[in-house]
Computed example of a mutant assay.
Amino acid sequence: MNDIQFQGGLNIAIKIPKSKYEETVTFYRDILKLEVKEVSIQNPTVSRTHQVSFGNNTLWLDCVDNYTHSETWLELKTPDVKKATAYLQSKGIHPCDEIEQIPENSHWIMDPAGTVFILNKGDGMKPNE
């Protein structure tokens, strides 16, 4: 299992309490003057989302009605999700897919500090043989 590869993905999500959501969108759009657009979403835990062009990354501002503070979630890419998941489990890092609706063939994981990552297949990444 020494051939497992990971790389950071382009997507970063900030989970924002409903009480701070409009103010946060205004900050990115009107104060930082970044390109911000609302995108429709069908998710049981995210009521609204805005997509922000953030350099080479896409920042997602997610309105979460039941949060009391913001959290930043990151994307982690790997060529073989199943193999990477087994590797992570061997290191004591277990999927926590119950935290939010998850795309098929992906997993949510957390680092020891509680940072959430979506683990999914990297486009163009080739598994080591």
Score class of each variant (00 low, 15 high):
67 Y>G: 05
38 E>S: 12
129 E>G: 12
116 V>A: 04
40 S>K: 06
68 T>N: 14
115 T>P: 04
115 T>F: 13
31 I>A: 00
36 V>A: 01
9 G>N: 00
108 W>C: 03
81 V>F: 00
47 S>M: 09
24 T>E: 13
1 M>K: 04
43 N>E: 08
63 C>F: 10
64 V>H: 10
25 V>Y: 14
103 P>R: 07
109 I>K: 05
84 A>Y: 07
10 L>N: 11
67 Y>L: 15
120 N>W: 11
69 H>W: 05
21 Y>N: 11
39 V>Q: 11
82 K>T: 05
129 E>W: 06
75 E>D: 00
1 M>D: 07
49 T>G: 06
45 T>I: 15
103 P>T: 05
60 W>R: 04
66 N>E: 15
112 P>T: 03
61 L>S: 03
95 P>C: 02
1 M>N: 06
88 L>I: 12
14 I>W: 08
98 E>V: 07
50 H>V: 10
105 N>C: 12
97 D>K: 01
43 N>Y: 03
22 E>A: 15
46 V>A: 03
102 I>V: 10
90 S>V: 05
37 K>W: 03
35 E>M: 10
120 N>Q: 12
73 W>N: 07
127 P>T: 09
51 Q>S: 11
7 Q>T: 12
72 T>Q: 08
56 N>H: 12
98 E>G: 09
120 N>S: 09
12 I>P: 01
39 V>N: 08
122 G>C: 05
110 M>L: 10
91 K>F: 07
4 I>M: 02
11 N>H: 02
58 T>R: 03
31 I>L: 06
122 G>E: 06
34 L>C: 08
54 F>T: 01
88 L>Q: 13
58 T>F: 06
76 L>C: 02
83 K>Q: 09
83 K>A: 11
64 V>A: 07
40 S>R: 03
54 F>M: 13
104 E>A: 08
7 Q>L: 08
107 H>P: 10
121 K>A: 13
29 R>Y: 12
51 Q>G: 01
40 S>Y: 02
119 L>M: 02
98 E>D: 13
15 K>D: 15
96 C>S: 12
75 E>P: 02
90 S>L: 09
39 V>H: 06
104 E>K: 07
53 S>I: 01
129 E>S: 14
108 W>E: 02
105 N>P: 09
43 N>F: 02
122 G>W: 04
25 V>C: 15
48 R>D: 07
89 Q>M: 14
4 I>C: 01
11 N>T: 04
68 T>C: 08
58 T>V: 10
60 W>C: 01
46 V>S: 04
17 P>E: 14
106 S>F: 02
46 V>Q: 06
92 G>Y: 12
118 I>K: 02
123 D>T: 12
83 K>N: 07
116 V>R: 09
